[in-house]
Design a protein around this nucleic acid. Structure first.
Ligand SMILES: [Mn+2]
Ligand SMILES: [Mn+2]
Ligand SMILES: [Mn+2]
Ligand SMILES: [Mn+2]
Lengths: 216, 216
DNA sequence: CGAATTTTTTAGGTCTGTCTAAAAAATAAA
DNA sequence: TTTATTTTTTAGACAGACCTAAAAAATTCG
């Protein structure tokens, strides 16, 4: 892979962890190291590089935080990742649990026109195969949809699967084998069959009119 | 077997130059360096690595040559490169002059199932957008088609464009602007308009029954 | 508060792939 | 067949990204 692959992965990690922890917070190098499966000193070094490039600022012993430029670049990466995942599932017929690692490579392909054409080819999708929103070309995420953790949803009302939280492969495979995928309608009685560990990962929304029928 | 982009590009260069120069010939490190836009000592170093990996053999001061394993790996790279080029042109609507650099990146994506699915998605194409044959999953190139350089084709007979030789971007753009693409039928009078420098790059075959009509 | 623990950075190495400059081998010319 | 030229390899450096071990700062706790 090209040289910037690792830089870009660090950038994305900083973005992801920063989003999780709230806007103005500093992300610890330890957290990034764990997320990237790398040792903390390696992250410190890379954070310095990102700082040089104007992608992040670094407060020693506090953590790192993206600059506006860094955030913009991170969003193009997220966009590419999720568009490729969509392509792999929608067009090539991959399962939703198979695409993350491949998209992790594809997201680093450097070509603006490629991303635009892929986006158009897919019909400008707004969410990826895991229900995560796809940033627009201008770097805006349409976070208009309000999703609720399945476990917090009222027990007597039906709902519809809108996204899965942390796309761990195993979780996705097990959900699929239970007949649960994006858009699946869950009635109160359906929920009894879902193990807690899986239910924790599922985000739901009110049942929409144009639902996808369950295949059970 | 950890692979890297640069190793793979060296492997492919060795394959390409080896094919051009005939089966049993040794490829000079200088030729590879020129082809890869790298200095000769870098190639020497990489040839040693490929030799370690069992991909090539090296005769000092003579050159390098692929082993059967190396040839097999090189063919999977060529296959990936040409499948991606086909995808970019056929599905995403790129021009044939735009796809080489992007495919040069995409060919290094590491996923066997991705290649197979892409191949199926494209309908198992046998040639890429430049007319070059696409190796099969088993590493076989169907070189059944006999193409003739346009300049050697009898002046009074019509022919059909089957491939372009060295896919230089400028050449491809100029050919397109003359209305010449893959499958274009060239009648004797059409050939008068084609500059020598361009005609040199064109390979033709006898006019087939199901030709693509020219857009002029 | 001050000592013990945890977190983070610095210091110093390794590995890969590149470079330039110099040495060695092969080839061409006289 | 010697000498000159070209080609190729070796030697030594450098940059990026990673590591372990040790030092420094921040945090926790008695
Ligand atoms: Mn990645
Ligand atoms: Mn996703
Ligand atoms: Mn390449
Ligand atoms: Mn091609």
């Amino acid at each position: 892979m090209s040289k910037s692959t690792h830089r870009e992965d660090h950038l994305k990690a900083l973005y992801t962890l920063g989003e999780e922890a709230g806007q103005e917070s500093w992300v610890s190098t330890n957290a990034m190291a764990a997320h990237l499966d790398v040792k903390p000193p390696s992250v410190t070094a890379m954070v310095h590089v990102m700082s040089e490039l104007g992608w992040a600022e670094h407060r020693p012993y506090r953590g790192a935080r993206l600059t506006p430029l860094g955030k913009k670049l991170a969003l193009t990466l997220v966009r590419k990742h999720r568009l490729w995942e969509t392509f792999l599932v929608e067009r090539l017929g991959f399962g939703w649990e198979e695409v993350h690692d491949i998209a992790e490579q594809l997201e680093h392909i450097d070509s603006v026109s490629l991303v635009d054409k892929l986006d158009a080819y897919l019909g400008h999708p707004t969410i990826d195969p895991h229900g995560d929103p796809i940033p627009t070309a201008k770097g805006q995420i349409a976070d208009s949809r309000r999703l609720t953790p399945l476990l917090e949803w009222p027990h007597d009302k039906p709902c519809q699967v809108g996204a899965v939280k942390d796309s761990n492969d195993k979780v996705l495979v097990e959900l699929t084998s239970l007949g649960i995928e994006l858009g699946t309608v869950l009635r109160p009685e359906d929920r009894l069959k879902v193990p807690l560990a899986l239910a924790e990962e599922v985000l739901v929304e009110p049942q929409s009119s144009q639902e996808i029928s369950t295949n059970e």
